[in-house]
Amino acid sequence: MTAPRTDDVPASRAAREPRRGRGLETVLIIVYAIFALSATARSLVQVLTKFDHAPVAYSLSLVAAATYIAVTVALVRGGRRSAVARALVVLELLGVLVVGTLTVVDPALFPEATVWSVFGQGYGYVPLVLPVLALVYMLLGGRKGPSA
């Protein structure tokens, strides 16, 4: 194991050295990309093969998928300080909370599960935790200024 160490360097040095990566932002982007991929695939299969079965649930699946794609793109292009990404993550959080509450209150609306059903139960509640973590990271990162 002779991998290079990646100890934090002082900001002045880091500014002069070539960028080694985006850091935690990369992880956020990858996790969002995975969700974008899985939600899109799932909703496309649902909408194309059996839309009449549960129109509300499947439409929301599509909305969820579009949100994940949008957040991924916004993060890649604008980074964690992007206002667009922040707004989209807030939208995503609202979506999880509204759909999660609806699935608990009125299960008949959702004969089949979506990514956001019961606050993302089928995905280990990651859909509920992810936007919260992303928002915390974005807000903390935003305060440190452009060199962070």
Binding site: P4, T6, R20, G21, R22, G23, L24, E25, T26, V27, I30, V31, I34
Partner: peptide, 18 residues
């Protein structure tokens, strides 16, 4: 791929997640 280009510990985190 990400792990190869993200030259920080976070590249390793991505591999762990994936």
């Amino acid at each position: 791929w990400v792990g190869a280009f993200e030259r920080t510990r976070w590249g390793s985190v991505v591999i762990a997640v994936v």
